[in-house]
Design a protein around this nucleic acid. Structure first.
Lengths: 211, 211, 211, 211
DNA sequence: CATGAATGAGTCTTCATTCAT
DNA sequence: GATGAATGAAGACTCATTCAT
């Protein structure tokens, strides 16, 4: 029994060590991909950044491509957490809060999201597996959200399909220069101001009204 | 005199043939880049698509990279034509018209714009030379546009910086799935509906009002 | 401690294996260069001659050119060993001995010296880095040697500058057809006869005298 | 008759024009080869230097290689003129004069001779066709010259084979730095001093004697 | 004959992957 | 499991030669 316990214990340590190293490689790869793009990055550079030998990469991943897919997968789960809440939006305040939170999540793992965004343009598998579904889901939820509110007489009778696209545009655009490294990540304050302004624009547009 | 005329004439023919072939290579390259991304494309593939020998590419361009830059440059001039009109927007109708036109331009040279958009994520030179300036200019013009209208009491006192970003988001987002090949290009009718809806959202938001 | 020792030992083995292989590539390259000249030799041929893959060359050298420079460098150190002794010449016998030895050294690494001699005509870097200095040094020592002996009344008052050039010619010329592969390398006996004859000519010329 | 004459006349003009152009190409090629070596020179560079189109080269020569061989051939005839006189040497003065003249010839067509010397190391055809014969002939004549004088009691009983080699070394060596572009060509005065010193060394060596 | 664009075989070099230690 | 040298397929680019104008 003692032996088994010992083995289990050391087995657990081993598992954790493996997991840690896998993670280290993944993060290293994401950093290099974010700097130089997937195609321009060599396995040697990933290995150096992770401080392991090139061959070691192949003990944890099937190859360079699989590291990319693992990054996409990782990013996916982070994003999913936020997306799940889209359906729970009830009030204007909910939307502001979620917008701020989404922005924060995107930015918190910048190398991962940047890598994903750059590859999506270029890699059909990543597009299909890690993007289309996801965005279609948000898009549908936005549409439902809008439709419901139109029916409830809260929103004007806008086209829900077009409008949901545009709302997504409003939320996504400011992220892009940050992902691209042109702007530095916004502070908490900036994120709030942005979320507030976004919802304000969506709700009321820019025009003065007399009510 | 006759000789000179002859020479001039054949010289002109030669110039035109060269220009035509340069263009053929450029378009072939853009098509392949759009399908497979710059990094995944070989010079052989470009040559095959243009139906010339590999070596011929190098009679017209300094190398693979220069073909990419030429594509970017080409795209730039097409886009610039539209951007120039941003400053002339006066009325709501102007904005709708320009939005429709912009969408059309982007789509008319799909392989070129798609290549440019994919590379901008990954190539710092292209980012700087063909993007930053351009978008900053639009962005400033939008800001000025908004600020002027706020001062004139036409628009509510929204934050011009944030709002101009978001307006750009509204206009840019629907292009992306088309560029990426997920959606097929919109018809004229769809473009108009979209432009109309975009300006409508920007002007009045989604909320019902009682005026 | 045992572990460290083991590691050190295997580390040493590894170092030696690497050094051996580097040397093998260098010698293979020198052989091919000597046969076909640097410019006519392909990296594939070098790799085949060294019995390694083409890519392996690049684990040991920065490229084809660096292999050439390494050969020049190698040859340099061999030659330098002989040149160092030029200044120690005192007697006629010293000169004979050194001439014989120099000839032997040149011939012992024929592929290296042949490669170097062929490239010097064509490659300015090699000319500067591996030739000019070296030959100027010998030349100066020869001049000094001659001047001293003139002052001591042992030599006639010949022009030391011109004479040292010619002495070098006497010593260098017979090497050339061997380097070029026209003559086969001289035996020890032939080398001695040649060295003796060279010094004899330099000392006394061809003319009969009546002393 | 008049027609034939006319045709002959214009035919002659044509021949001369062709010959002139052939020569221009040859000289241009020699200059570029001398600067960059045969292997490093492109046909485009030759064409540019000769101020003709690339295709024109092929109207006058079979290809790049044939231009080189033509240069070798050209050089040959120049050198041959000098070599023919070697057999006519009778006196010490003859030898001095011929040495001076030989040096001058070598230098007068520097690009040609330099090209030839650089290629001889590397090109077996040039070695065989334009070098071996020629130098063997001089060598034999020198041997005969020496042997005759030994038999006549004018020269000491040196080894004619070795000595003739060395005499060639004495005469050839000072040319090399000039051919290689390290030294600038000697003036007439320098050439005479060198020729005089060379013969002096060969005749009497360096040693003081008491006769 | 002159021209110079087109050609494509031939090079050097890179780099993901394998595997012996 | 970790290492990093070996591998060789693949790719960008060059350039002697050809040939239509």
């Amino acid at each position: 029994v003692a032996q088994t316990t010992n083995r289990n214990r050391s087995e657990g340590r081993r598992q954790r060590r493996i997991e840690r190293r896998r993670r280290r490689i993944l993060e290293a790869a994401a950093r290099v991909f974010a700097r130089k793009s997937y195609a321009q990055t060599t396995t040697k550079e990933i290995a150096d950044e992770a401080d392991v030998a090139e061959g070691t990469l192949y003990n944890y991943f099937g190859g360079k491509r699989e590291i990319l897919l693992a990054i996409a997968s990782e990013t996916q789960s982070v994003i999913d957490a936020v997306l799940g809440e889209v359906s729970t939006i009830q009030s204007r305040e909910d939307m502001v809060a979620l917008a701020e939170k989404g922005l924060q999540v995107f930015i918190s793992e910048l190398p991962f999201t940047r890598t994903l965004f750059a590859e999506v343009w270029v890699d059909d598998v990543i597009l299909q597996e890690f993007f289309i579904d996801r965005f279609q889901r948000i898009w549908q939820q936005l549409q439902r959200f809008i439709t419901e509110r139109i029916e409830a007489g809260i929103f004007r009778p806008v086209d829900p399909v077009l409008t949901s696209s545009m709302v997504m545009g409003i939320f996504v655009i400011p992220i892009i220069p940050v992902l691209r490294g042109v702007n530095s990540p916004p502070t908490l304050e900036e994120r709030c101001a942005w979320a507030e302004a976004a919802v304000d624009l969506i709700w009321d547009g820019v025009r003065v009204r007399k009510d």
